[in-house]
């Protein structure tokens, strides 16, 4: 770990002032950043602790929720409004990490956690364009079972590991940020980038920008949501793949459906092609598999992860048929 200074921000303005200095990093629960510092992958020389910033979950005028960035993952998952109205979010959070880590982790930090690619983590012994731009990618021809099948580039095949973010992508959340150039909002689906030739940049955030809150719009009446995670052991493992879905039916026809996949791309993958294919349809196993096939038409599987498109398709079919039957997955 590199030596660093630590300061606790009093409020957003204080955080922004301190965060404007180059080499500064915001510190949430530290469950990811501190690990990366220990591995010398992250080398900030200023840590600005933002866990003292507001941490409330408030109702908004349009019937949604505004969630401050410093809200802990556990608090968000347990919030009655979240559990009742956005079960997909509550379940996604609880499917992740461990109780201890969720107690520490913040909403802001969860959004910006970095990939679990083993080559990204091997700072001494592996090449990684995300960690050291231009050094190459050892994952592309190496162990890539947990890697991307959609939207990857020659430079990077990493996935975004968050469960929570997959739910937020399906919920059409909005990210509120503040920075040197003022406040702005970013549609959740646009926050994370595809790797292209700049895989070191995970998001569209500018230097020093602070995430202040996440806004959740109200779900259409009658919409049901669910999250399902598929992993290598029963708990405490990142998703191999995951599915978040929000389904609204009229009779047995799909009026609205929103789908996001985890574990398949550099970002939580909003499955717009599958959504389009499903609108107006009756949910059956085959209809869903066909919709998923449309989404994965351009999938580029690697040596170890060719199973992912089919696994996602089957999982999606199970999730949507359960939701259509009125059963939560």
């Amino acid at each position: 770990m590199n030596p660093f200074q630590y300061a606790r921000a009093d409020d957003a303005a204080d955080a922004l002032r301190r965060g404007a200095i180059s080499g500064a990093a915001y510190l949430g629960g530290g469950t990811n950043l501190v690990d990366l510092m220990r591995e010398t992958i992250a080398r900030p020389d200023q840590l600005i602790d933002v866990t003292g910033l507001p941490a409330t979950i408030a109702e908004t005028d349009d019937g949604g929720l505004l969630i401050d960035a410093a809200v802990r993952n556990t608090a968000l998952a347990e919030h009655p409004a979240v559990r009742m109205r956005y079960p997909v979010l509550s379940r996604a959070i609880l499917a992740g990490a461990s109780a201890q880590i969720r107690n520490m982790a913040t909403v802001g930090g969860n959004l910006l956690q970095r990939t679990r690619c083993t080559y990204f983590y091997d700072a001494e012994g592996a090449r990684c364009n995300k960690r050291t731009p231009g050094s190459g990618c050892d994952a592309r021809e190496g162990f890539n079972r947990i890697h991307a099948v959609l939207g990857a580039s020659d430079a990077c095949v990493a996935t975004h590991p968050s469960d929570m973010c997959v739910a937020l992508a399906a919920l059409d959340a909005t990210v509120h940020v503040d920075g040197a150039e003022g406040q702005r909002t970013i549609p959740f689906a646009d926050l994370h980038r595809l790797p292209g030739d700049q895989p070191d940049r995970d998001t569209v955030l500018r230097d020093g920008e602070l995430i202040t809150a996440i806004a959740l719009p109200a779900l259409p009446t009658g919409a049901r949501s669910a999250y399902r995670k598929v992993r290598d052991r029963a708990s405490y493992a990142f998703a191999l793949v995951s599915v978040a879905a929000v389904l609204q039916l009229e009779g047995d026809r799909v009026v609205d459906v929103r789908i996001a996949f985890g574990g398949v791309a550099h970002k939580p993958w909003r499955a717009t092609k599958a959504e389009a294919a499903l609108r107006g349809q009756t949910i059956t196993q085959q209809v869903v598999l066909d919709a998923a096939a449309a989404e994965f038409a351009e999938a580029r599987p690697l040596r170890d992860n060719a199973f992912k498109p089919a696994l996602v398709a089957r999982t999606l079919a199970a999730v949507l048929t359960d939701l259509a039957r009125g059963e939560a997955a």
Binding site: T118, G125, A126, G142, F143, I146, D232, R233, A234, Y236
Partner: peptide
């Protein structure tokens, strides 16, 4: 390719947890 252990960590080298 180079004889290096890629998952030299308990995050990616999986052992059973209680739920397993």
């Amino acid at each position: 390719r180079n004889g290096r252990i890629a998952n030299a960590s308990m995050a990616e080298y999986h052992l059973p947890v209680h739920l397993d």
